[in-house]
Nucleic acid binder design. Structure first.
Lengths: 205, 205
DNA sequence: AGCTTTCGCTACGACCCGTAGCGTAATGCC
DNA sequence: GGCATTACGCTACGGGTCGTAGCGAAAGCT
């Protein structure tokens, strides 16, 4: 995290409190104003910080919002509910709960849209948001294979492809349900989705 | 379409050529500049039209881009390839080809993000983009049921839920693969995806 | 003809951007 | 303690975009 401060540089250190205040203010502004009407000047005022301080730490609106939204996914974890179906339902419900929050809705898709023309931004999103979700998928699959609920996958290339596919199906379906269809990914929906996914992966439910 | 012009209003009619020029200029600007750097003044100049003409027809950037992107989906249709699996692969490949275009990538997700705070915009997207995709899903399922590849669904409420689920899974997976994971939804991927989906829906592949 | 609406053009205030410059505050090193 | 170095708050600025108003001319209808 502190790769820019090799050990302890000379001079006044950056305020860690300012960072958390800025990111919290960014989420607050996302809720109240949405992505398009959010301005860096407004965020600075909300955080009680000068606008120049903001520009010293983030290159622009895109990078700031990525970091602010990424913290929302900190609470994601893989519960052990005893069966693969229950594990999937648990994770998907957590994911859906985060996506239901207005700051995630308006912020996440906007930066993803911007990342289609900015490779550095895409990499930032991948490293701070997507990778963490991917790890849950891989961990869940590994656990299920230990339980014997999923067949082992000897070929690593094939295993990677399958992991990517599962991830895109799970995350994509929840995001599409929440943001495009505009309907809640509630327990009933998650149960139906998990049944189809599991049947698709194993052939038996 | 011409609900605003009950039959033929008095006065000079609006130029239909201007509409097509503006929408084409919008897509061109999306490719070159992306969503965030696209300005209405620039689009007007590209289209050879005054900026005021643009504002007379569209409320703002959001509505304009929705209409410009919607035309990309005009080419979507449901081919009859003989089997449900082949039909799904065909439609998904068409959908993926559209999403691979830069004007779709940068424009579609941006307006979806904006629609999380604008109900009228969400409705516009639903009517002009999402509904057409949904019809393909429903038509494909109906055809598969006639073929006996999918079980008939007597309960209309349950049928609607299942249709929504299929739609979110299909569209969500392709969108996530293309925009978030940043990898192409090529034939190999589509084949794997279709296999999982079909097995999930029927229990047999 | 006369009426009505659209079009192109110019101009405008308002807002936000991103940066520069300055004086001040906080830390590490000698 | 003094010194160098960096971060901070503040102000101010040119540049760009927004969305609208006002005008005269053009293109339809009756």
């Amino acid at each position: 995290m502190q790769s820019r401060t090799p050990a302890s540089r000379p001079g006044r250190p950056r305020s860690a409190a300012a960072d958390t205040a800025i990111l919290a203010a960014t989420r607050e502004a996302l809720v109240e104003l949405g992505w398009s009407k959010l301005t860096l000047g407004d965020v600075a005022t909300r955080a009680g910080v000068a606008k120049t301080t903001l520009y010293r730490r983030w290159a622009g609106k895109n990078e700031l919002v990525v970091d602010a939204v990424a913290e929302l996914f900190d609470e994601l974890e893989l519960p052990d509910r005893g069966s693969l179906a229950a594990d999937i339902e648990g994770v998907v419900l957590q994911f859906a709960a985060i996506l239901a929050r207005p700051e995630a809705k308006s912020g996440l898709m906007a930066v993803v849209a911007e990342s289609t023309r900015d490779d550095a931004l895409r990499e930032r999103i991948r490293a701070s948001i997507v990778d963490r979700q991917m790890r849950l998928v891989l961990a869940g699959r590994a656990r299920a294979q230990r339980r014997g609920e999923l067949p082992p996958e000897p070929d690593p290339a094939e295993a990677a492809r399958t992991g990517d596919l599962i991830f895109d199906v799970v995350a994509g379906a929840v995001v599409h349900r929440t943001l495009v269809s505009g309907k809640p990914a509630d327990e009933d929906w998650v149960r139906s989705f998990t049944r189809v996914l599991l049947l698709g992966l194993t052939g038996t439910s």
